[in-house]
C-alpha cells in the first residue's frame, strides 16, 4: 500500500505540474457549463428535478471522457518515455503500481467534479431539489468516472503509445455502452444479461433520478476492479516479453 501511495502522490503532482491536468479540467468544466446552460436552464420551463437530471447526465458523460483522456498517459505514456522501468524494477508489486495510478487520476476526477457543484446549487435560486438527489447523482457520476478510468488504465497497459491507448479505451467504453441498443433487439434472457452489463445509461439512470441501489454501486465497483485486475495481470505478463 505504501508503494501505491508513493506512486499516486508522484502521479498527482505530475498532473498538477503538467498542462494535461489543467487542460482536461478546464475543458470538462467548460463543456459541462455550456450543457447545463443550454439543456438544463435553457430550452423552456422544466421541473427542478429534471434540470438536475440533465446536468448530472451531461456531467457523467463528460467525466467518463475526461477519465479516459487522463488515463492514456498513465502506463502508455510511461512506456513511451522509458520511465516505466523505474517502477517495474522497484520493490513494489504490479498491483501497487496500477492502484497508485488509479488513485491519482481518480483524485483529480473528484477534484474536477467537486468544482461543478455551483451548478446544481444554482437550481436553488428559482427551484427546489433534495440534497440527497444531488449527492446520489454525484455518486453515480464518480462511479461511472472510476469505471471509465479503470477501463482506460487497462487500455493504457496494453497499448504501446498514448494514441492507441485512448482509442482502445474509447472502443471498450463505447462497446459497453452500446450493449443497451443490442439488448433492445434481443430476446430474454440474453437481453437481461446485456442490460445488466450496460455501462451507460442503463446503470446510470437510477443515480440520475436520485435512487441509490446497491446493485448499481456494486456493478460500477466490479467493473473498475475487473479492469484494474486485468491491467495488473497485463503488466505482470509483460515481464515475459
Amino acid at each position: 500500500m505504501r508503494g501505491a501511495l508513493l506512486v499516486a502522490r508522484r502521479e498527482l503532482s505530475a498532473y498538477l505540474r503538467s498542462l494535461l491536468g489543467y487542460i482536461v479540467a478546464a475543458g470538462a468544466l467548460l463543456i459541462e457549463g455550456i450543457y447545463f446552460q443550454a439543456y438544463g436552464l435553457g430550452s423552456g420551463p422544466k421541473l427542478s428535478a429534471e434540470v438536475l437530471l440533465r446536468f448530472l447526465d451531461g456531467t457523467c458523460v463528460v467525466t467518463m471522457v475526461a477519465a479516459l483522456i487522463l488515463s492514456m498517459r498513465l502506463l502508455a505514456g510511461e512506456r513511451e518515455h522509458g520511465t516505466l522501468v523505474l517502477l517495474r524494477t522497484a520493490p513494489i508489486r504490479d498491483g501497487e503500481i496500477i492502484a497508485g495510478k488509479f488513485l491519482a487520476a481518480f483524485t483529480l476526477i473528484v477534484l474536477m467534479t467537486a468544482t461543478t457543484v455551483y451548478m446544481p446549487l444554482l437550481i436553488f435560486v428559482n427551484g427546489k431539489v433534495s440534497v440527497g438527489h444531488i449527492l446520489t447523482g454525484y455518486a453515480g457520476v464518480l462511479l461511472a468516472g472510476g469505471a471509465a478510468l479503470a477501463i482506460g488504465i487497462f487500455a493504457s497497459t496494453l497499448a504501446s503509445n498514448q494514441v492507441v491507448a485512448v482509442i482502445s479505451g474509447a472502443a471498450l467504453i463505447v462497446t459497453m455502452a452500446l450493449l443497451f441498443w443490442v439488448a433492445r433487439v434481443t430476446e430474454p434472457p440474453v437481453n437481461d444479461f446485456l442490460f445488466a452489463l450496460n455501462l451507460y445509461p442503463q446503470r446510470q439512470r437510477p443515480f440520475l433520478n436520485g435512487v441509490l441501489r446497491l446493485e448499481n454501486v456494486l456493478y460500477y465497483v466490479a467493473v473498475a476492479y475487473f479492469f484494474l485486475l486485468a491491467a495488473t495481470h497485463t503488466l505482470r505478463a509483460r515481464r515475459w516479453r
Binding site: 522509458g82 520511465t83 524494477t89 520493490p91
Partner: peptide, 21 residues
Amino acid sequence: NPHEVRSRIGYLPDRPPLYDE
C-alpha cells in the same frame, strides 16, 4: 524473490528513466 533482489539492485537502463517535470 524478486522483491528482495530489487531492493539490493540499482539499475540504470540504456535510456535513463527520468521524470522530466
